[in-house]
Structures are given as C-alpha cells and as structure tokens.
Design a protein around this nucleic acid. Structure first.
Length: 262
DNA sequence: AGGCAGGTCGGTA
DNA sequence: TACCGACCTGCC
C-alpha cells in the first residue's frame, strides 16, 4: 500500500535514536527499506520521494486494519506542518531534523530498549535489542517471555547487559502483572505516570520520559539526555508545553550534528 | 591507559 | 535539594 506523506523521512527516523526495533534491509536502489517491529506486528516499509510503501513481512498487501496500525505508528495522524510552524526552531535545526517524526511505539518495546540504553552507546544498545528480538521471531519478547529468557543464565550473560541485567529482570517480572496507567486512562497526567515508572529499579527520569514520549503518547514529555542537557547549558531553551517531546527530538538531532562546534 | 557512551543509585553536604 | 563516584562493557 502506498501513502503520500510530507515532513516524513524513513532514514531520518531510523537514525534519530528513538527506536531500536528497525532493521535496514539491503536495497539495490537509493530508497532504503526497513523491516520494522512493534508489539506483535511487523512490516516492511520503504520510501521513494514522498511516497511511503508498507507491506507485510512476506511482501504482500496489508489489510485495512493492519494499515491503520502503521498509520498511527508512523504518526501520520499528526499534522507535522502545523506542529513545525508552532515550534521555535532555527533554520539549522529544521534542516538537521527534516523528516523526523516521533513514532507511536509500543510501551513495552520502548521500556526494554531504553532500560538497556542507560550509560551505553547506540551500537551496543542496538546489538542487545537485536539479540533479544532474534530470540522471539523478530519481535521484542513480551514480559513473561523475557523473564523466561533471562532466567537462562547463559543466555542472559551473552547479552552483555552488565549491571543492567538485574534491572531488566525486575522490569520483566513487574510487567507480568502491571502496565502503565495511561493504557487504561488516557487522561492520566504525565507527572503521575512518570512517578509510577520511576518506582521501577533502573528507571530514572530520563528512561521514564522516553517511555512516556515514545511509548505512551505524551508528546509533551522531554527526555533529558547528555545532548539536551548540553543544549540547555549553552542556550536558553523554552520547551513547548504540548509538543516539547517533538521539539526535543529536533534539538537532539541538531546537537548531534553540530556537536563538534561546542 | 584512561575516558567516555542518550543514566541511575546511594551516599554526602 | 544538589552534587559526586561507582558501575558492566566495548571502543578509541
């Protein structure tokens, strides 16, 4: 199925650091193709110009309901033209982050990915997430499944999670009988959701805000990593009360691009 | 060889 | 409340 897009770039999103469940597929031409996993769904997405193509993993046409899932996932139900014009961004910042959208990811996928991400680096995070997904048919193992996998000491050690391993075990155990409040109550305030997430060992303010922004649809949540903290020290940043998280994604891309100048 | 990488925790002032 | 060092691991 082909979809006409604007303010949308698959490669830009892939390298934006918000998602670790994409796998780039070899492609003869310039248009990159990705095998994408989210919750229990997978698809193949490719883009040529402004045209986005979504297929099932086997290359067939997706059904209407499956398509609706990915439409929301890719944030195509958001008016980025309007959001972009609302955010206070410089020309430079717009350019560096052109086509980046904040995906509507699965909260569990995000929780596992960013629990692993703490004090680590992107290649290493990517490796660990990929390893986990290879153990579950290309999907992020669900809580019970992850718990079982990590109970295998040999398997767990091979992931090289270091001191994050007990955190991930605790998370899997907790998530067997718990989920974020917003899934039941869309009106749940961000601060309350954050506070509850931060009770889980290994989840601090940074990881909690990533879960809220990327996995729970709180577009006002602003994850503060080293890059954003650097930006806040060097400049005065006013975070948008509604779309601060999207703004953060743009500032993040711009900071990484221009880091050598600071 | 020491420092750092998309943090968090527990201990101090 | 705010700051500090330790922490698994891999790579420069």
């Amino acid at each position: 199925m082909r979809i006409e897009t604007s303010d949308f770039s698959l490669p830009a999103i892939a390298s934006s650091g918000q998602v670790f469940t994409w796998q780039e597929l070899p492609s003869g031409r310039a248009d990159a193709r990705f095998l994408i996993a989210s919750s229990r769904h997978r698809c193949i997405a490719s883009q040529k110009g402004t045209t986005l193509t979504i297929l099932t993993p086997s290359g067939s046409q997706p059904s209407a309901s499956v398509l609706a899932y990915w439409h929301h996932y890719f944030a195509l139900d958001q008016d980025y033209g309007a959001i972009l014009s609302r955010l206070p961004l410089t020309q430079d910042q717009r350019q560096c982050s052109a086509g980046i959208r904040v995906l509507a990811q699965d909260w569990w996928d995000v929780s596992v990915s960013f629990m692993i991400s703490q004090n680590s680096n992107i290649p290493r995070i990517q490796h660990a997430v990929t390893s986990l997904m290879e153990s579950a048919h290309g999907l992020m193992p669900r809580p019970k499944q992850l718990k079982a996998l990590l109970d295998d000491e040999e398997y767990a050690q091979a992931l090289k999670l270091g001191y994050r391993l007990p955190y991930l075990r605790a998370l899997a155990k907790t998530a067997c009988h718990w989920q974020p409040r917003r899934l039941q109550d869309p009106a749940m305030p961000l601060a309350d959701e954050m506070a509850e997430l931060e009770e889980i060992p290994g989840i601090g303010p940074k990881v909690a805000s990533c879960i809220c922004l990327y996995g729970l649809g709180y577009l006002e949540a602003v994850p503060r990593d080293t890059w954003i903290k650097r930006a806040e020290r060097a400049y005065t940043v006013e975070w948008d009360p509604v779309y601060g998280g999207i703004q953060q994604q743009y500032i993040f891309a711009w900071m990484r691009e221009t880091a050598s100048e600071l």
